[in-house]
Measured scan of single mutants.
Amino acid sequence: NQASVVANQLIPINTALTLVMMRSEVVTPVGIPAEDIPRLVSMQVNRAVPLGTTLMPDMVRGYA
């Protein structure tokens, strides 16, 4: 089972991601792999991401 990136807090739209906003968790469906967390830092979300939501590739500008 692969860990995915999950929002550690509410992340408002257009917010640049920081390490404290994300955690890794084994979830279904699988989202962005946890090993990509360092790559996600400073990328912006293109929608509001509620606490506990799995980050999907289409939620992060420039990721996919």
Rank of each mutant, 00 (worst) to 15 (best):
E35P: 12
V30C: 04
Y63N: 05
D58F: 09
M59D: 15
T15C: 03
R47L: 07
M56I: 11
V60R: 00
T18W: 03
P50E: 14
A16R: 07
P38I: 11
A16P: 13
Q9R: 14
Q2N: 11
M21P: 01
Q44H: 13
I37H: 03
Y63Q: 04
R23W: 04
M43S: 05
L17P: 02
M22G: 01
N46I: 15
S4E: 00
L10A: 15
S4T: 04
A48D: 15
M56D: 05
T54L: 05
V27D: 02
G62K: 08
V45C: 03
N14D: 15
M22L: 12
A7R: 00
I13Y: 15
A64M: 07
N8H: 12
P38Q: 11
Y63C: 03
N1I: 15
T28K: 15
G62Y: 09
A16E: 10
V5E: 01
P50H: 13
S42P: 02
G31Y: 02
L40Y: 02
A48W: 15
V27R: 14
R39N: 10
V41L: 14
Q2K: 12
Q2E: 10
T53I: 09
G31L: 01
S42K: 10
E25M: 15
I13L: 14
Q2W: 10
P29K: 06
T54A: 08
Q2C: 04
L51C: 03
V45K: 00
A3H: 13
R47G: 08
A16N: 10
S42M: 14
V26P: 06
G62F: 07
V27K: 11
L40Q: 00
V30R: 13
L40I: 06
G31Q: 03
V6W: 02
V41Q: 06
D36F: 12
E35G: 10
S4K: 00
V41C: 04
I32W: 02
V20Y: 15
S24D: 15
M21N: 10
M59Y: 09
Y63M: 08
P12K: 13
T18Q: 07
P12N: 13
A64L: 11
N8G: 06
R39V: 12
N1S: 15
P33W: 08
M21H: 14
L17V: 04
A64W: 03
A16S: 09
T54M: 04
V49L: 10
R47I: 07
I13M: 09
Q2A: 15
G31F: 02
D58M: 08
A48L: 09
I32Y: 02
V45A: 06
V26K: 15
Q9V: 15
G31K: 01
V5K: 01
P57M: 08
P12W: 05
P33D: 05
I13N: 11
P38V: 09
G52M: 05
P29I: 05
M21I: 03
G62R: 05
E35Y: 11
V30L: 10
V20E: 13
V41P: 03
V30Q: 14
T28I: 13
G62T: 06
M59K: 02
L51W: 10
P12F: 05
I11K: 00
M22V: 11
V26I: 12
P57T: 05
P38N: 11
P38G: 14
L19M: 09
T18P: 00
T54E: 01
L10F: 08
I11W: 01
T54Y: 02
E35T: 14
A34I: 10
